[in-house]
Structure formats: C-alpha cells, structure tokens
Amino acid sequence: MFTSWSLIRFGTILIYLFMFAPVAVVVLLSFNANQFGSFPMEGLSLRWFVALLENKAIVRAFQTSLLLGALTAVISTTLGVLGSLAMVRYDFPGKSLIATALIAPILVPEVVLAVALLLFLGAMGMPKSFPLLLAGHVIFTLPFVVLVVQARLVAVKREYEEAAMSLGAGPIETFFQITLPLILPAVLAGGLFAFTISFDDITGTLFWKPGGVETVPTQIFAMLRNSISPEINALGTVMIVITVALPLLSAGVARQLTRKQK
C-alpha cells in the first residue's frame, strides 16, 4: 500500500514538473542579461522587455490581439447572453437543435472548424479580412459564454422577473434592472473566457488571418521559425501574466459582486 501510494505521489510530482518546469524556465530566462538562453544565468536584466517594446512587429501584434480579444469578448458576451436568454426563458420550435448548434464549436476539433469556415468563405468568394477573423473567434468562444451564462440564468428564478413586470417594468427594463445584475458575475466570467481564449488562439487564427496581420501567438510562431530570440521569453512571460492574472482578477471581482447580492 505504502509503496504504491508513494509511487503515485512521485509520478504526480514528475508530471507537474514536466508541465510547469518549461514555463518556469521561460519566465526565468526572460530576465536573463545574456543573449544566449542558458544556465547558469549571468545577471538579471529587463533588456528583453525593453527590446519587446522597441520591436514594432510585436507591438503591432499586441495591439491586434488586444483589439481582437476585446471585440470578441464584447460580441460573444452580447450574443451569448441573448442566446442564453432565448434558451432558458423561451420555448420555440427547433430549440434543441439551436442549443446543440450553439455548443457544437467546442465539440468539433478546431482545425476542422477552421478549415470549414475557410472553405465556406472561399465558396462565397469572400477574401480573408479582420472582420472574418473576428467572426471566427466569436464562433468558437460563444459556446463558453453560453455555457457559463446559461448555468447562472437557470438559477435566477423566473419570479424575480415576473415580480418586476407586475410592478410595471417592461421586458427591457426588467432585463437591465433585474436579470442582468443577477447574472453579471457569469457575464463577466464569460466575457473574460472569450477574451483569454481569443488572445491565446493560434490554430484558427493561422487559417483565418489576412496577410500581414499577426496576433501575438502567430507572431511568436513566426519568430520561432527563424531563431529562438530571448525576446520570445519576455513575450511569453507577458502572455502568462495576462492570461493568468486577468481571470484571477475577474474571479475576485465576481466574488465581490455575488457577496453583495447575498
């Protein structure tokens, strides 16, 4: 018994090491003063972060990624909230079909989705463009928003809305006064999900992006093809900070919001 448990513990530690050691190495090396990423490090420096800021391509990629992520988050959240409302609050023919269609993009491998959208655009005779890239990101972030918001909406009793309407609030006022505040934590979480997924995505983006447009992941990918520059370590560190800190921050905000409601 004892030995088998220690074996499992040992294995688990190894797996975590295997997963996180490279990340730690990247973060460490991004502060390395030396040009060549090797241990032992020869002094700390922020020079690679400065280099990042001076690299126009990277700055532009960052701007693209932020814009794309923000727009994806806003559009996905809006559509996701509307879709969830329709799914949870209304009955209409073909509802289960639409419910499946809304979730489908997570079930289909991303490559398949990417190729399918590309073929579809080709058949329609549409060139690749930023709005289409955005549309692609919206399609595969939407399911996450829908799942999160729907789960919350189911828990918000219909009576709150009915009470508001009986007191004279129309359907739209009821939504903004009652429903939205009550599902707000889920809406924020969904939006954040959408942002992080979009910010992080490479597969779909590689297929859909028009020539000349790079997001941070595709930029790193392109840079890797030439050489492994220490700038990439710094860029990786920034990515890690954004994709880890943002969800933590919003989880905190959401917790505050829910506490206020209780």
Partner: peptide, 27 residues
Amino acid sequence: IHKRNLGIVFQNYALFPHRTVQQNVAF
C-alpha cells in the same frame, strides 16, 4: 402584465436579492 396595475406576492416572495428593502418596495 406590466400594464395591468396588479400587486403580486409569490410563494417564495421573490424579493430582488440585489436591492435593499427600501429599493425593493420603491421599485
């Protein structure tokens, strides 16, 4: 319903959880 001028009390009360008592009554 919102044009019928009715007062409804639900079995589970349905007080708006994010509003104070004052705000609930004034709604």
